[in-house]
Amino acid sequence: MSTATYILGIVSALIALFTVVELLRRRRLRERHAVWWFVAALLALVLGIFPATLTALADLLGVEVPTNLVFFVSIVILFLVSLQHSSELTGLEDKTRVLAEESALQKVRLERLEGLQERPSGDFRPEP
C-alpha cells in the first residue's frame, strides 16, 4: 500500500468521524441515528490506521479479497441503517394516524358545541 493511499484512508475516516460528531453536536442528527454511522467511521479509522487488520480478518473469515470484506461490512451497515429508519417510519405512521383520528374527533366535538351555542337559549335538546 502506498503512503498516499494510507493517508487518504485515515483522512477519509477522520472526516467521516468528525462529520458524525459535528452533526450530533449541532443537533442535526440524533444519537440513535448516529450509532451505525459512528461504528462505520470507527471501523474505517481502525482499518485505515492498521490495514493489516483487514487482511488478517479476511483470512480469518475465509474471504479471498479483503476489499470484498469491506464492501460486505458496508452493505450490512447500510442495511441496518435502512432497517432502523423503516422501523421508526412505521412508528411515526402509526402516531400520525392516531393524531389524525383524534383531530377528527375533536373537530366533530367542536362542531357539536358550536351548534349548541347557535340555538335559541331555551332549546337544550341535543342535535339528532
Rank of each mutant, 00 (worst) to 15 (best):
residue 66 P to R: 09
residue 86 S to E: 10
residue 31 E to C: 02
residue 57 L to M: 15
residue 31 E to M: 10
residue 34 A to L: 06
residue 13 A to L: 12
residue 99 L to R: 15
residue 64 E to C: 05
residue 56 A to L: 09
residue 19 T to A: 09
residue 63 V to M: 14
residue 90 T to V: 08
residue 61 L to I: 01
residue 62 G to W: 14
residue 58 A to Q: 03
residue 39 V to I: 15
residue 19 T to W: 07
residue 26 R to D: 00
residue 78 L to S: 14
residue 82 S to C: 12
residue 34 A to H: 07
residue 56 A to E: 12
residue 44 A to Y: 05
residue 34 A to N: 06
residue 59 D to N: 13
residue 81 V to T: 12
residue 24 L to G: 03
residue 72 F to M: 15
residue 84 Q to T: 10
residue 90 T to Y: 15
residue 98 V to E: 11
residue 59 D to P: 04
residue 19 T to E: 03
residue 23 L to S: 05
residue 68 N to P: 00
residue 90 T to H: 11
residue 24 L to S: 07
residue 64 E to G: 11
residue 15 I to Y: 04
residue 58 A to C: 05
residue 82 S to G: 15
residue 24 L to C: 05
residue 25 R to A: 12
residue 45 L to N: 07
residue 97 R to A: 15
residue 54 L to H: 05
residue 29 L to D: 08
residue 91 G to N: 07
residue 60 L to M: 14
residue 43 L to M: 09
residue 89 L to A: 15
residue 102 E to R: 15
residue 8 L to F: 15
residue 66 P to A: 12
residue 21 V to D: 06
residue 37 W to F: 13
residue 69 L to A: 01
residue 94 D to A: 14
residue 96 T to F: 11
residue 46 V to A: 13
residue 85 H to L: 12
residue 85 H to P: 00
residue 9 G to Q: 10
residue 103 S to W: 06
residue 102 E to I: 10
residue 70 V to I: 08
residue 88 E to A: 13
residue 61 L to T: 04
residue 48 G to W: 02
residue 55 T to W: 12
residue 46 V to D: 05
residue 28 R to N: 06
residue 60 L to R: 02
residue 46 V to G: 02
residue 17 L to T: 08
residue 100 A to Y: 03
residue 60 L to S: 09
residue 93 E to I: 12
residue 89 L to G: 06
residue 44 A to N: 06
residue 97 R to H: 15
residue 104 A to E: 09
residue 88 E to I: 11
residue 95 K to E: 03
residue 33 H to C: 04
residue 68 N to V: 00
residue 95 K to H: 05
residue 21 V to M: 13
residue 50 F to A: 09
residue 52 A to F: 02
residue 85 H to C: 04
residue 26 R to Y: 01
residue 44 A to I: 05
residue 90 T to R: 10
residue 76 V to T: 06
residue 91 G to M: 03
residue 42 L to S: 07
residue 76 V to F: 00
residue 45 L to H: 10
residue 38 F to C: 09
residue 32 R to W: 09
residue 37 W to S: 05
residue 92 L to H: 12
residue 25 R to F: 06
residue 92 L to E: 08
residue 21 V to T: 10
residue 71 F to D: 00
residue 50 F to Y: 14
residue 58 A to R: 01
residue 38 F to S: 02
residue 11 V to G: 01
residue 46 V to N: 04
residue 31 E to N: 00
residue 104 A to Y: 13
residue 93 E to Q: 06
residue 63 V to W: 01
residue 26 R to Q: 09
residue 10 I to M: 13
